[in-house]
Design a protein around this nucleic acid. Structure first.
Lengths: 128, 128
DNA sequence: CTAGTTGCAAAGCATTTGCCTGTGG
DNA sequence: CCACAGGCAAATGCTTTGCAACTAG
């Protein structure tokens, strides 16, 4: 059975507390505040485990390696925003919907991903 | 200056003739019909060159390495559809637009990507 | 106790680069 | 002729795996 270890707890906590999708590196940095010797391999292994358990969800963005967010964020339909400046990713609410009109004849739709790109509020402030 | 070689010509032709975004591997296969000894390194080097020249455009999809499409496809705003079954990617016309309403307060929008997932017409027919 | 976990180092893979030979202009 | 290109093989960077030591239950 799957054990509760300090490493896993630190990773779970970081994910749950972030409120946005985190990259494996961001996760390593955050979790190392708790467990300084934590290795990247453990982060990857724990992420696979959390995804299997349904505790975390992979967030795939165009042109970037996957990030991961806590189950609570994934429970409702949402999309993502990536800041050009700080490169952080945020969840965004709402959806234009009605994407069936875009389909070529004979194609059927199962899902859609929308990614917005621009500047987040913090970076906008810094830039003046 | 940049030279015209049989390798580059084969790659250009494959891209121009495809009518949809191609992965480096698809491109290698197609171009090897013309130049059997063509190497992957040349495909990658030529793609960078074509992108610099504006002859080709990189198409980034969530969770996948970039594909490339001919300039002619990129001249107008469009999005992409990926078939779950054959894994090919197609261009789709139209756009729900008005994505600004989704932005959190203080965020500004520069661009958006939409990717549709489902089954293409050919695969739908095969599946009956 | 002892099977599941971890850290470290080595292995994988797709992409990129270095180097020497070949060739377009 | 000779600077640019191409093929091959080695290097890279991120992710995964192997393995011996460690620890939760």
């Amino acid at each position: 059975m799957s054990r509760t270890t300090p490493q896993r707890q630190a990773i779970r906590d970081a994910l749950a507390g972030a409120g946005r999708p985190l990259s494996p590196n961001e996760l390593l940095d955050l979790a190392q505040d708790e467990i300084p010797k934590l290795g990247m391999a453990t982060v990857y292994r724990t992420l696979s485990l959390l995804v299997e358990e349904g505790e975390a969800v992979a967030v795939e963005l165009p042109g970037e390696p996957p990030r991961y967010e806590h189950r609570s964020a994934a429970e409702h339909h949402h999309h993502h925003f990536r800041c050009d400046s700080c490169e952080r990713v945020f969840d965004v609410e709402g959806c234009p919907g009605n994407m069936k009109g875009m389909l070529p004849k004979g194609f059927s739709l199962r899902a859609h991903h929308i990614t917005l790109f621009g500047t987040c509020d913090e970076c906008a402030k810094k830039a003046g």
